[in-house]
């Protein structure tokens, strides 16, 4: 992983120096441990800020929307798929991008780590599969693999699908993973049970819209929840309004979601927001054999018409 970091810095420096890009989008250390933040580097002398470790879970494709300058962007597997989605949705031009692909081995879920440590975490370092967490003066060793975000444990596209250069050898993709076990568990429930499950799931929601803001798909100039003429959905804390927000937002991501986990990572209340999008991802895979962001050649199933599109639901 640290090899990646040096390569990212080196590449960023080279690109900025030769002037082939105006800006590099990557990560730098955040003010808190495990909270790397996006950074925008415009001068070669600033590239030392760039970092790469297991806390780079934010999806950087989110910062590309409608950009006009030439940009180099650091992209994991999921980021690259969202870049593809951005390109086919005309939110950025391919020729404006220099994609620095990073083969990814999953990102650490800061909540999993925090749950195992009593008190504030002061520092986290990693070496291979070992995370060393300093918490109230005491050091604790954890397995990085066991601390991964749920979406990363279910990921089957760790290597970038679209890139101009890679910072390391492609990593082995995970195989034999049951990505939709959780969705099937809910599918097996009775309607009343399902209703209650989502009721409990969304109970802590404070409607801060962090999930929407972190999501690279949510780039509408005015989101439907912010509209007031007409007002599509109530703006209150009423459970029905909260539910309407979540399932409508999920529908807007149907056939576009790459399961990058940015929404879940951003949620301050730790709500498993992916419960909505995973169901749609499963459906779109079963009905159209589609996974978002894998190719520039094909239009997504929900913006094309084919005579054999499944339409059993229309009577």
């Amino acid at each position: 992983m640290s090899g990646y970091q040096d390569k990212i810095k080196e590449t960023a420096k080279r690109l900025l120096k030769e002037g082939s890009v105006e800006m590099v989008i990557g990560f730098r250390k955040g003010t808190l441990p495990m909270m790397n933040e996006p950074c925008f580097i415009r001068r070669p002398e600033d590239v030392h800020q760039l970092v790469w470790d297991s806390n780079c879970g934010i999806n950087l494709a989110n910062y590309l929307t409608d950009r006009k300058e030439k940009i180099a962007i650091v992209a994991k597997g999921c980021d690259s798929r969202n870049i593809v989605t951005h390109i086919i949705e005309n939110k950025i031009k391919r020729e404006k991008l220099h994609i620095i692909g990073v083969p990814c081995q999953g990102m650490v879920d800061k909540r999993k780590v925090a749950a195992l440590c009593a008190g504030d975490i002061e520092n986290v370092t990693e070496d291979g599969d070992v995370l060393t967490v300093t918490c109230q003066g005491a050091e604790k060793k954890l397995s990085r693999k066991e601390m991964l975000q749920e979406n990363c444990t279910l990921c089957i596209h760790r290597n970038p699908v679209l890139f101009d250069e890679l910072v390391g050898e492609p990593v082995a993709e995970q195989t034999g993973i049951d990505r939709f076990a959780e969705v099937r568990r809910i599918e097996a429930m009775e309607s009343q049970e399902k209703w209650q499950y989502f009721e409990d799931l969304l109970a802590p929601c404070v409607r801060c819209y962090a999930c929407r803001n972190a999501c690279p798909l949510c780039y509408c100039p005015t989101c439907f929840v912010d509209e007031s003429k007409p007002q599509w959905v109530g703006k209150s804390q009423n459970p029905i309004d909260i539910r309407t927000f979540h399932f409508l937002r999920a529908y807007h991501c149907a056939g576009r979601c790459t399961d990058c986990g940015a929404c879940e990572r951003a949620c301050p209340m730790g709500i498993k927001v992916r419960q909505f999008t995973s169901k749609l991802n499963k459906d779109v895979l079963e009905m159209f054999g589609w996974e978002a962001g894998m190719t520039l050649e094909q239009r997504p199933p929900l913006d094309t018409y084919k005579p054999n599109d499944p339409n059993d639901f229309i009577k």
Partner: peptide
């Protein structure tokens, strides 16, 4: 599908 997935009874929503 998502509507029924989150607990709307099958048959209540029809197209």
């Amino acid at each position: 599908n998502l509507m029924e997935h989150m607990g709307i009874e099958p048959g209540r929503l029809q197209f």
